[in-house]
Amino acid sequence: MIDRLALDIAHLCAGGLVLVSFMLLYQDRLTGLINTFALHALVVSFSVAWQAYIQQAPQLYITAAIALGVKAVIIPLALHRIIVRLGIHRSIEPVVSIGQTMLAGIGLVALAVMVMLPVTAQAGTLAREDLAFALSVILLGLLMMISRRNAVSQVIGFMSIENGLILAATGAKGMPLVVEISVAFSILIALIVIGIFLFRIRERFETVDIHLLHQHRGEQP
């Protein structure tokens, strides 16, 4: 049914997403990070669109359109505005050095492949590989969230996790559109809420470095 080329392109997209996730890990400037995230969302939307084409599932085109419109355009633009208004163009400091973070990321991808390939032995080839890549993207997003201090980069890590979830769901043939729309909206609302919080935090403490927040909780000197 699915010819060789279609499968290869699907793999290419999923693998490309993992690659962009790695790119997210080593961005040390917020502007670059946001641009890379836009690329991340672009790859997801293309991947979803390709799935829609090879699975003949027209509703997935809507998913792809949402991913493209909201995550590749609106959210990056909004984040750019936020950081301009916050005036944070300085470099962001990873907690672990970039080399170690990358190594940890490679380990996570290996782990995801080791877990997923045996578990999904009965599933179709397409779903199998997609799931392994999607799990990698999710784990890399989590790794990003814990290795960054800046609240904006944590938001981006969170949204890259969501991209991984979409990749998994479309690969599994049949994430209902309703679920996708609601997830997309919840992400948007999360962005709005987090954006507001960022301003509030800055107003209070004159920084969005969450490390400084803990000092205000009173348990650290």
Binding site: V95, L111, M114, P118, V119, L139, I146, R149, R217, E219
Partner: peptide, 27 residues
């Protein structure tokens, strides 16, 4: 009870990775 947000996320992450490891080794 009194960890930082990032420490909690690290706990979640560590637990997830540990469970996945168990799953990978178990098979």
């Amino acid at each position: 009870q009194f960890l930082t947000i990032r420490a909690y996320l690290t706990l979640v992450f560590g637990a997830l990775v540990a469970l996945l490891m168990v799953l990978a080794v178990w098979q």
